[in-house]
């Protein structure tokens, strides 16, 4: 876990509102319009995470790709490792939205799941 450099400023990415957050030396968050912003600021300063979205090659379908995402945010520094896993993965139709394509990717407590239903 990183030792945060305080005070800090950042843009909240939890929702499209994009609040400008300020975090003081005591880790108090201001500028957030909702509690999720405060949680985001603390996570971002200690162990930043991101949801990764991409696509996976799909066979047995006129649609060549199925979109995917990580079911939970994963550590930011693991983004490219997760992308490499996604590249290694393939799927065959039918696929259901939410279907797990990679279970517990790299042991990060998140699955890679399909985000579109594609019938065969």
């Amino acid at each position: 876990m990183n030792k945060p450099k305080l005070p800090a400023e950042m843009i909240c990415i939890v929702c499209p509102r994009g609040c400008r957050l300020r975090v003081d030396e005591e880790m108090n968050v201001t500028g957030n319009a909702c509690p999720r912003g405060a949680a985001y600021a603390k996570t971002e300063l200690t162990h930043p995470t991101r949801t990764v979205t991409s696509t996976v090659a799909l066979s047995e379908s006129a649609i060549g790709r199925v979109p995917v995402k990580t079911s939970a945010p994963i550590p930011k520094e693991k983004i490219f490792d997760v992308m490499a896993e996604i590249h290694r993965c393939g799927a065959a139709a039918p696929v259901a939205c939410g279907q797990v394509l990679i279970k517990n990717v790299l042991g990060l407590d998140a699955d890679v799941v399909a985000t579109r239903t594609v019938k065969s």
């Binding site: 696509t55 090659a57 590249h87 993965c89 393939g90």
Partner: peptide
Amino acid sequence: EKIGGANGD
């Protein structure tokens, strides 16, 4: 090329 290299096809 196709995305993702080998699995792209």
